[in-house]
Amino acid sequence: MTRNSLQELKEIWDQREDEIKQLFYYNYGDLPYLLDIKVDKHLFRALAQFWNLVYSCFTFGKVDLVPTMEEYTTLLRCLKIQLEKAYFRAANVPTFLKKLMSITCMSEQWVVARINLRDLILAHSDTKKRVDIFAMSIYGLVIFPKALGHVDEAVSDLFDWLGKRVTPVPAILAKTFRSLSACRRAGKERFIGCAQLLLAWFYSHFWRVEKVSYRVFSENYSPLKELVVTPRQDDISEEK
């Protein structure tokens, strides 16, 4: 099941009607803002050098920082995520084919012949299914990327549990920690995790706030949206 390109997903989202966007925000939170977060490679390489393999945290001098469940949940801002319901792999997991049929509501013949998430997002007869498949595309491309350019089977497994209000945050954090440790051990290993969300977490600790706006205490306040519209200098070298 080949994943979509990031640019394709951004174009699809920009063309969606407000009604569909609101349905997406209600069911899956602020995931679409991750499509607009530019990954600063110089900053990311510099940040990875501060990852402490022993304690699994970032160590800046005498200060330790590490993403937490609460912080990532706040960034994703999905009302249906419940912290007390963690994802786990059940004993009798349906086959990959059955999971795709359930998620897409397409026939076995169609799924076996070809899976193209872009076509389903644009042309599926069920509006909610278009929203679901778009969300799965973001999970497959941004949240749990694969180096080979395909959607991981584990994404469909976890995605099936999102409908049961299960939080994906522990799985996201585990993938992030493992990827950071792999980068540190290998030196130049590719980070295979949600770089956009990790950078959003990092930026959130260093925003210069002269006056706290009342908006941050509102239920509708979106930290990811704030990050996207906040201007940043992105021409800084890795050394600097």
Rank of each mutant, 00 (worst) to 15 (best):
I138M: 15
Y139P: 04
Y139G: 05
L141C: 12
L141M: 06
V142E: 07
I143K: 07
F144D: 12
P145M: 04
P145C: 08
P145L: 03
K146D: 15
A147V: 10
L148I: 14
V151I: 15
V151P: 00
D152E: 15
D152K: 14
V155N: 12
D157M: 15
D157H: 09
L158M: 14
W161G: 04
W161E: 15
K164V: 02
R165T: 12
V166M: 06
T167Q: 01
I172R: 10
A174P: 00
A174F: 05
A174T: 10
A174W: 05
K175I: 03
K175W: 08
F177I: 04
L180E: 05
S181H: 05
A182V: 06
C183I: 09
C183T: 12
C183F: 08
R184Q: 10
R184E: 10
R185Q: 11
A186L: 10
F191S: 08
I192Q: 07
G193A: 15
C194Q: 05
A195E: 15
A195F: 12
Q196N: 12
L197Y: 01
L197A: 04
L198G: 02
L199E: 03
L199D: 00
A200S: 11
W201H: 03
W201D: 04
W201P: 09
F202L: 06
F202D: 01
F206E: 02
F206T: 09
W207G: 03
V209C: 13
E210I: 07
K211G: 04
K211I: 10
K211C: 07
K211V: 09
S213D: 13
S213M: 06
S213T: 13
Y214R: 11
Y214M: 04
R215G: 02
R215L: 08
R215I: 04
V216I: 14
V216M: 06
V216P: 02
F217P: 03
F217I: 09
S218I: 03
S218V: 05
N220Y: 05
N220K: 09
Y221H: 11
Y221N: 06
Y221T: 00
Y221C: 02
Y221S: 01
S222C: 05
S222V: 04
L224G: 01
L224I: 03
K225H: 14
E226I: 00
E226Y: 10
V228C: 12
V228K: 12
V229P: 01
T230R: 00
T230S: 05
T230L: 01
P231W: 10
P231C: 06
D234E: 15
D235H: 11
S237N: 06
E238R: 14
E238T: 10
E239V: 10
E239W: 11
E239M: 07
